[in-house]
Structure formats: structure tokens, C-alpha cells
Design a binder for these strands. Structure first.
Lengths: 244, 244
DNA sequence: CGCAAGCATAGTGTATACAATTTCCGAGCT
DNA sequence: AGCTCGGAAATTGTATACACTATGCTTGCG
């Protein structure tokens, strides 16, 4: 079961695709997003090189960029691993995204042309359709596409780029901490409501809607118990400088 | 005049410092900040390698990271150059920083312990001192240190990291677009006022003060005329695909 | 049976060689 | 003079070799 994504990639190579560090970054990012590369997965340079048919030089560049993108963890002399953000970081990432995405949609309200608005509404309809026919992966894909598009459309491109990053990071932690019980984290009507605010040029309403949307998403996660880790630290960490 | 920073670096190497990509990143970043490496400066890999006494492998990693940090521009098969953000991007960077730094100080208001507060006030006094004795470089250094410290102290470390990035980027464009006429862009009393708000636990006042501070800073820049570039494009660019 | 030391394996860090590409300059033509 | 067409120099892209570090397993001892 763990070999499938490798086969995908190698098929693409056989098909004659140009391979560069950008492709590796994209593939790994997407595989992480879709949970085909779960957090903690080892990413040895030679292995990646064999998979993509390139040498370690190219892989190394890709890994460096993935590290900058907060997708993987790279520590000296150790294998790169898919990042697994802590619960604290998850909360902070969501808070940051609420701030940034709220500002972006506020800036966007009333500043979309007809074509852009209709493209967004089409995506929203695709999302609803996918949900109604129970195709959760497709629904997630379309939902992500909406937010991603908002980031692209941001009049402030600096904020837009930051939002792109935050969308990726929140997606990763959603996949990580999603309650197994919950089949879907589809929040009925949120996206259509947002698009209404954008159409009607109501920046503060748009900010509110996206804020509530993200808060609701966060509330669907299983972020309760800190588990043993923190307790161990509290119990055993009486004197700080004893080990080394 | 262009050799001085190289000598600095080589002296450091002779002194036995460990060189790694992190050191190169730091050195280049600092040199860009202090305008010893003005925007547009070429950064060939072999040259940097000779300067720092390492091979291109290490330099390349550093350059990749600097690209991710928006400090340099790297385009395929071309020499890396110090980035020179456009006026539009400058405006957008400032807007992004107002948003993020405003949130950070709002979160920080009333949540600083005595030690942290006094450290910030000490920095603020150093800034005033430097200004009064006319030492502008030192004043900038201390001012930067205050903002940088705020980013470090941010309870939300995701926002803190984003703020660190934005401080660097705004500093670069300040250096780029500073009106030559203005000797100093010291905004009397802004920092002490901010620290008061933090001490008195007034988040919204703190957000307001930092927002005004950054707006005032932005207003000191020379961002008016778009110069000939845009005009040339408008006048000569009648048909897009003629050159190549 | 548990445990620690040591060796084999796996993996990263760095330097270097060679290929491919761009850039710059000069010669030659109009 | 101006313009274009080489061609050499400079520079990046990629692969590979070797050294160093970490990891894991096995062996030997208590």
C-alpha cells in the first residue's frame, strides 16, 4: 500500500515529463496533502532520487525548499521527515490563517469581476455536488481550490502568498487531527455565503464568515488531550540540565 | 568600496568561525539590510564560494534559502541577484506587516512579564540615545531589534515567524526607497507609546499605535512617481509578442 | 535473559567534474 | 556607423565520489 505514489511518479517519468526540483516539491506537497505521505514518513535523498530519476543534488534542492515551506523537517545528519505539527502549532496556524484570510476576503469584497465570481461559484457548486454524491476526496479538492483561488486573487499579493502557505499548513494538520468518527468536515453553505458577501461588497461580513468558517473547521478537529508527552515533561523535567 | 564586506567575511573565516549555509544566509541578509549589498547586486555562486571558503554545494543551499526568504531573485540559468521589490510590492508588504504586527502586539498587550518589558524599554532608550547623538545606523539597529523582539515574543509563533520575514522585507524596501533628503526616519515617541499600551494591557490601542507607526514610516518613503519604466511599457508595448 | 560494546549499513555533508546555458565582446558585413 | 553572427568566457545545472555521522543489529558479557 505504500508503493502506489511511487508508481504514479515513475509512470509520469516514463511518460517523458521534465523533472526538476519544482516537480518534486509539487509531488511531495500533493502527496502530503492527500495523506499518501503521512506525517513522520522518512524521505531519504537517495530513495527520492531513484524514484524521480535524478541525482541527490536536485532532491536536496527540493528538500530545502520543502523545509522552507514547512512541509518537512530537516535536521542535521538526519533523514528528512514529513512534518507533524504539534497541537499548539495547529492552533496558532489556524489563528494566523483566520487573520490573513479574513483580510484577503475583506480586500476582495466588491472587487471581483464577473468572470472571477462565476468561476468561484462554479467551484462552490462542484463542491456541493461532490458532497451530495459522497465523494469526499473530490469535495476536499474543490474546497481547497476555492480557498487557493481566493489567495491567488488577493489584491495584496504578499498576503496572497502567505495565505497559500497557510492553506497548505492547515490542510496538513486537518488531515493529521481529523476526528476519525467524522466522515466529512463539510460546512454546509459557508462557501456560498462567503461568495454572497464578496458579490455584495460587504468586506466585514466576508471577514466574519470566513472567520467563523475556519473556527468551525478547527472545532471539528480532535485537539483535546495533550497526551503523555507534556505530562512526562512536567513529571520528569524537574532539573533541566542533567542529561548532557 | 565594494570590497569591504568581503574582507569582513574573510576575516571571520580566518578567525576560525564555522561556515555553513546558515552563516552565509545570515551574512547576506545582514549585508542586504545594511545596504552593503544594494538591490540588483550579482551573487555568483563561485564568487560567494571563494569568499566564504566553501564549495558551490553549500552556497547553492544558502541561495535557495535566501530565495525562499524573498531576499534574492533566482531565475533559471541566471545569476542570483539581490531583490529589488517594485513600488506595488512595497505597498503590499507594508500593508501585510501592519496586519500581522498589529495582531502580534494586540496578542502581546498585558502578556509581557516584567523582565521582557524592561528589556524592550531598555532597547527603546538605546534607540533614543542613538538618535540624540546622531548615530543613525545604531538607531536603526536598535529600532529593528525592538520589532524583532516583538516577533520573537509573539504568543502565536506562526505569526511571529511571518512577522520576522515581513520586518526583513520592509527594511529592505525602506533602504531602497528612503528619501535621500530625510536624514532620519525616527518617529519620536512611537515606540515608548507602544510599550505603554503593552504594559497597560490595551490590545486595540497597541494595534492602533503600531499601525500608525508603520503608516508614518511608509509615508516617509518616496513611492510617488512610477518613473519611465511603466510609461515605456505603455508606449512601446503595443504588440506583446514581437521580440522573441 | 538483559544489556552494552562494536561493527556493518544507511544516510547526509561537501567537494568536484562535466554538461548546458547564458552573456559578452569582437569581427565582418552592409 | 550600425547591425548581425560567431565564439570564448562566465555561470549555472546535474551527477558522482568520498568523508563523516547516525542507526541498527549482532555478539559477547554479566
Amino acid at each position: 500500500m505504500s508503493k502506489t505514489w511511487k508508481e504514479d511518479v515513475q509512470a509520469a517519468i516514463r511518460a517523458g515529463e521534465r523533472i526538476s526540483d519544482q516537480h518534486i516539491v509539487d509531488k511531495v506537497r500533493h502527496a502530503v496533502l492527500t495523506q499518501r505521505l503521512p506525517p513522520g514518513t522518512r524521505l531519504p535523498e537517495v530513495t527520492l532520487g531513484e524514484i524521480f530519476g535524478v541525482s541527490r543534488s536536485v532532491v536536496r534542492k527540493a528538500l530545502t525548499r520543502l523545509t522552507a515551506n514547512h512541509v518537512i523537517d530537516q535536521r542535521p545528519n538526519q533523514v528528512a521527515r514529513v512534518r507533524s505539527p504539534s497541537i499548539d502549532e495547529t492552533l496558532e496556524t489556524f489563528a494566523a490563517r483566520r487573520l490573513v484570510e479574513g483580510e484577503v476576503v475583506a480586500l476582495l469584497a466588491g472587487h471581483l469581476d464577473e468572470e472571477q465570481r462565476q468561476a468561484l461559484e462554479a467551484l462552490s457548486r462542484l463542491e456541493v455536488d461532490a458532497h451530495q454524491r459522497g465523494d469526499e476526496p473530490a469535495r476536499i479538492e474543490h474546497s481547497l481550490a476555492i480557498h487557493h483561488r481566493l489567495a491567488e486573487l488577493s489584491p495584496n499579493r504578499v498576503l496572497g502568498a502567505m495565505l497559500t502557505d497557510l492553506i497548505l499548513r492547515t490542510s496538513i494538520v486537518i488531515a493529521l487531527y481529523k476526528r476519525p468518527s467524522l466522515a466529512s468536515c463539510f460546512l454546509e453553505g459557508d462557501h456560498p455565503r462567503l461568495l454572497e458577501c464578496l458579490r455584495d461588497a460587504e468586506p466585514e461580513a466576508a471577514r466574519q464568515v470566513i472567520g467563523d468558517h475556519l473556527q468551525a473547521l478547527e472545532n471539528l478537529l480532535d485537539l483535546g488531550p495533550r497526551e503523555a508527552e507534556a505530562d512526562l515533561m512536567a513529571i520528569l523535567g524537574q532539573s533541566r540540565a542533567m542529561g548532557a
